[in-house]
Structure formats: C-alpha cells, structure tokens
Nucleic acid binder design. Structure first.
Lengths: 145, 145
DNA sequence: GATCTATAGACAACCTGGTTGTCTACATCG
DNA sequence: CGATGTAGACAACCAGGTTGTCTATAGATC
C-alpha cells in the first residue's frame, strides 16, 4: 500500500503539474511510451517489445499519442511493412517537462525527509528490484534514479 | 519506477505463492475487496465507499468474488433494499494466507537489506503518503493484475 | 397515514488498456 | 523461385472502471 500510494502520489502530482503547463491531455502511459520510442524513433512492434506489451496494444497507444500530437507515424523507407513512430517537438517538450517535474517532486521529498532518508529509500528499493530479474520494468529507461 | 517495480514485485510474488496454495483464481483486487468487506460483512454500497469506487464497480467485483466462492450475498434483514456481502471460510483462508505471505516477503527483504533499511523505507514512504489520505483502492494504479 | 426525498442495487452503455486470433503485405533465407 | 517469418491492420473479447437511468424500499415531514 505504501509503495502504491507513493507511486500514485508522484503520478498525480506529475500530471497535475503537466496540466498547468498545457499538457492536460497527457496520460501516464504516454510518458512511458515516449520514453520507449526514444530519440531515434521506433516501429510499432519495436515499441511493443520495449514496453513488454503486444504490438496491438502498442498500436492503440501510438494512435493516442499521435492524436494529441506527441508523435508522428510514417512508413519506413527501409521496410515496406513497417511504420516508424517519431517524437514531435511537443512530445519532446512533454518529456523534458516531466523530467523537470520529477526532479521538483523529489526536491519536495528531500525537503520533508532530508537528503539521507530519500537516498535510503531509493537505494533500498533499487536493491530489491535489481535482485528480482524483472527485466520488463528494468527495461524502462530514463526515469529510474 | 522504483516504487512501481517494488509494488509489482510484491504483488507478483504474492499471487505466485497464493497459486501454489490453491488460490490461483484470486486476483489482486480480491484481497483488497475482502479486506474492505471486513469480518462483519458489508453491503454493496458500503463496499464501494470503502474502496473509493462506484457501487456499480463494487457490484462487479462482488460478483467475481462470489463466483470463486470468497463471499456470499444475501438480502439484509434490516434493510429490504440492501444486499449483505459476507466472507466465506475460503475467503478468510485466502486473506490469512495473504497476510502470511506478505510477512514472508518482508522477511526476505529484511534478509537482504537488514531490518534497519527496510524500516527506513517503510517509515519514509509512510511519511510521504501521510496527509494525502491515499488509502483507497481507487488510488491504486490500474496495472495490478 | 400520505407523501416527498434519499438511498440500495440492478441494468445498460461506454472508456481504457490490455489480450488473442486472423488476415494481408512485405522481407528474407535456402 | 518458393518457404517461412515478421509488420501491422482489423475484430472480438476481457477486466475494471465510469455515468446514466430505473425500481423498490427507507426515512423524514406534514
């Protein structure tokens, strides 16, 4: 419950803050997906693999991302079957904002608990998660630490 | 990510273990719902309020719980409109098992991190979550499965 | 006692994020 | 060349949630 509550707290704060900066359309999944797409883009199937999800689910997520203007879809030049997803400037902006807000949230925690205790939580959880071989979560880059 | 990863780790471990003990049908939601119903039972609307969810959602959850034999539904004697949900012995067994498994999981964490560091994580998170009154199931992320 | 209002729960339609299964178009390997 | 594998579209479905509408009953008020 503590873990879930703290997670929810972060996500809610993040999206409240994103909303204030004109990204009210963004849903929690979008950040993860944009991160997974990466700066160089990715195909639908590739996105599905990175998120640990079926390509059909990835397609739905990508459709949502395109609708709010966070990514573009265009056919691949190398592979006649593939569709390449690329982050738009607005998508990049959302990611950068998210990173800044995460930092800001962490600072409020530090203010309340002190640097040492926040670090203790992070290190402890990292050790627990690392020892589990839970590759799917570990695959999600960037926001960790 | 750390918080989400650790939460998933617990939930996955818990249900793997429950499965071994003949409760493979149990879904994460069921434990929370059984807990919310309490030893004395609750009506549908009451369950919804306790879970922080609409009564319609509570009704669906209750239907699932009844189907796998964790609760019974019978009309209230005091209120002609109400339906009282009560935990069956099997439901109680599942809850007791869950509690034991949680304790067991926590012990493995203590073995790996030491008593002090686990307590530091718990206390720190408790402090962060405190005040935001975030103890309802509706506050839990949708990816529990 | 009659009536007005609030509540319990059923039913239905819909949303989101996922699944599986089937299909076509294209890629790649022997 | 043909066999096989992969990308993605389309459709049906599931779980857990929502809102809206409906009935029956409970409680308060005249």
């Amino acid at each position: 419950m503590l873990l879930a509550g703290a997670f929810r707290e972060i996500i809610d704060d993040l999206h409240a803050e994103l909303d204030k900066h004109g990204h009210g359309e963004a849903r929690p999944l979008h950040g993860f997906a944009l991160q997974a797409i990466g700066p160089d883009g990715a195909t639908l199937s590739e996105l599905g693999r990175r998120l640990g999800v079926s390509k059909q689910a990835a397609a739905k997520t990508a459709a949502g991302l395109e609708e709010i203007g966070y990514i573009t879809r265009r056919p691949s030049t190398q592979d006649g079957r593939a569709v390449v997803l690329t982050r738009t400037p607005r998508g990049e902006e959302m990611l950068n904002l998210s990173a800044a807000i995460f930092e800001q949230i962490r600072r409020t925690w530090v203010r309340r608990l002190g640097q040492g205790r926040v670090a203790a939580i992070e290190d402890g959880l990292a050790e627990i998660v690392a020892g589990s071989g839970r590759a799917k979560i570990g695959d999600l880059p960037g926001w960790i630490r």
